[in-house]
């Protein structure tokens, strides 16, 4: 494998109507790197992930995946045009995404949820797709749930199924968008454990989360975003223990104070 970064984001900016939500984001993600993105709500964390997966359009900047410009093409005059739907779909198939509210397909069984991508996009045979899906579901601890409908699963099980669904495409990068935020507190751990397992296997991961312990244990780098900008970026110990900016300090103090209050209240 070469040392080329897997993702390069240059001067990314995006606005909804006239409200800017991402301002000049620059980020390079190396192979096998685990990046955790923290920040207050509305800071643009989720939008950044959606832009990387081209689920959101962006107005400025470039994203390179393994050295190739994705999403848009550029002609010799420097003007950009959106790529064809087929090319975008092809790129997306290499990027796995897990969502806050699971988004499992409710009319399909757990197994069908996991096999639909490989069957539809990779044209895998049914036997092959089923076997791979069973292995993945076994791995996330849902070996006994493969024939269930999603409505029968708990939140933690749904999210683990959603992770298996994304993994079935054998993605090069996994994006996690606040995947534990919609879960009951006691179900958070089972999902984080699956993610930790993935991290240990060397998956490249971008994780938007409020789980500071996870950030501390797993991340190579932590990004603090505020108001559409990357305010601080660095190793977790540095970011979480010695914040340089007033804004991050304030965020962490508030965050842990709220958490502490929760513990006292319990």
């Amino acid at each position: 494998m070469n040392n080329q970064p897997i993702l390069q984001i240059e001067n990314l900016s995006k606005s909804f109507d006239s409200t800017p939500v991402l301002k000049n984001i620059n980020l390079t993600v190396d192979r096998n790197e685990k990046i955790v993105i923290i920040g207050p709500s509305g800071s643009g964390k989720s939008t950044l992930l959606k832009c990387i997966n081209l689920l959101e359009d962006y107005q400025g900047g470039k994203i390179y995946f393994e050295g190739d410009l994705v999403g848009y093409t550029e002609d010799e005059n420097g003007s950009t045009r959106k790529r064809k739907a087929k090319e975008i779909a092809e790129y997306r198939s290499k990027i796995g995404m897990v969502f806050q509210d699971f988004n499992l397909f409710p009319h399909k069984t757990v197994l069908q949820n996991v096999t639909i991508g490989p069957l539809n996009v990779k044209n895998k045979s049914k036997e092959e797709a089923n076997k791979h899906a069973r292995d993945l579901l076994e791995k996330v601890g849902l070996g006994d749930k493969i024939m269930e409908m999603p409505a029968k699963l708990s939140g933690g099980q749904k999210q683990r199924a959603a992770i298996a669904r994304a993994l079935a495409m054998e993605p090069r990068v996994m994006l996690f968008d606040e995947v534990t935020s919609a879960l009951d507190p006691e179900l958070v751990e089972e999902v984080l454990d699956v993610m930790k397992g993935l991290a240990e296997e060397g998956m490249t991961m971008l994780v938007v989360t409020h789980e500071m312990d996870f950030a501390y244990d797993v991340a190579n780098r932590v990004i603090f975003m505020n108001d559409g900008r990357i305010v601080e970026i660095g190793p977790p110990a540095e970011i979480l223990r010695n914040p340089k900016s007033e804004r991050l300090n304030q965020f962490l103090v508030r965050f842990f104070r709220t958490k502490l209050r929760g513990i006292e209240g319990a």
């Binding site: 790129y91 997306r92 990027i95 995404m97 969502f99 639909i116 539809n120 996009v121 994304a166 495409m169």
Partner: peptide, 8 residues
């Protein structure tokens, strides 16, 4: 968003 993210 989910089916798009799979590349469908």
């Amino acid at each position: 968003a989910a089916f798009k993210s799979l590349g469908m």
